[in-house]
């Protein structure tokens, strides 16, 4: 049994009435995610990524179909608490997530709600704030922070819950290049060393290439999925669906159009340099 099992889920924000056609924000999605997997979800604005993400910790419940977390159905109310302990969701807008008037209280909020020992809370809060490089701001008021700083505090708040799975809805949208890199390496580290399942929603293709699997959504449905190598070699398909590829892939794709013979589209700077060096020697 997969850790996350999404089975033919449909969800609409509209009222369902007799004889009225409703548009589904999530439209028949089935997806299995194993414990310890790192999955990236990409897709155009409004394709249903956030809506799907909110199904993973029972913030939204399917109109039809089911979502099972570690075997538990999210639609069963008695499961909600256990599910939220297992799956931490970092919302798209950090302002919706920050609740307390001091940064460290905010980060402590999650573990406090779960009844964690005070000394353990202290330890987790400090570790989480250090992981996102916001320890020096622990006494500040969240509303006084810059956009990127708020986003990092919101991530720390989820890290402190120590869930088995972290779902992040565009966590790096407001970060500078090194902040982005720090968040992504923190996620990779949690995934590799603690086997934490990561579901990362992003519009940055250079982040998606680091995942084990990339899921491409389009208009509420899953368009395609596979390893980053498989998905990002479909340059034309991605562009047709409002997506993109890393600059390295873009460059090689263009050169391929002029006859350059290559087997594999490079997804990283290093691969691209190696490929071009080889071609020009």
């Amino acid at each position: 049994m997969s850790f996350i099992s999404i089975q033919d889920v449909c969800f609409s924000y509209e009222e369902i009435e007799e004889g009225k056609h409703v548009t589904n924000a999530v439209d028949g999605v089935s997806l299995e995610v194993e414990q310890g997997e790192f999955v990236a979800i990409i897709g155009h604005n409004g394709c249903g990524k956030s809506t799907l993400a909110k199904h993973l910790n029972a913030l939204l419940l399917p109109d039809s179909g089911r979502v099972l977390i570690d075997g538990d159905d999210t639609a069963v109310e008695d499961n909600t608490y256990a599910i939220r302990e297992k799956v931490g969701l970092v919302l798209q807008n950090p302002d919706n997530q920050l609740v307390a008037s001091i940064v460290e209280e905010d980060v402590a909020f999650g573990p406090e709600n779960l009844g964690v020992e005070p000394s353990e809370i202290r330890r987790r809060v400090d570790a989480a704030l250090r992981a996102v490089d916001m320890y020096d701001y622990r006494g500040h008021a969240p509303y006084r922070l810059s956009g990127g700083q708020k986003q990092r505090v919101a991530i720390a708040g989820i890290l402190a819950i120590q869930p088995q799975c972290i779902v992040l809805d565009e966590p790096t949208a407001m970060l500078d290049p090194s902040g982005r890199q720090e968040v992504i390496s923190t996620l990779l580290k949690l995934n590799r060393t603690q086997n934490i399942t990561v579901v990362l929603i992003t519009h940055f293709m250079d982040e998606a290439v680091l995942a084990d699997r990339v899921v491409v959504m389009d208009s509420g449905k899953i368009l395609t999925q596979g390893t980053p190598g498989d998905v990002f070699s479909q340059v034309e398909l991605l562009k047709k669906h409002r997506l993109d590829v890393p600059q390295s892939a873009e460059l090689i794709h263009k050169l391929r159009g002029c006859g350059l013979q290559i087997d594999k589209i490079p997804l990283t700077q290093e691969d691209c340099v190696a490929l071009l060096e080889e071609a020009m020697r």
Binding site: G43, H44, N45, Q92, M174, H203, R242, L243, D244
Partner: peptide, 12 residues
């Protein structure tokens, strides 16, 4: 930061 959060084509 007007393009933060937009999909790649939206940014473009």
């Amino acid at each position: 930061e007007p393009t933060a959060g937009l999909d790649p084509m939206g940014r473009e």
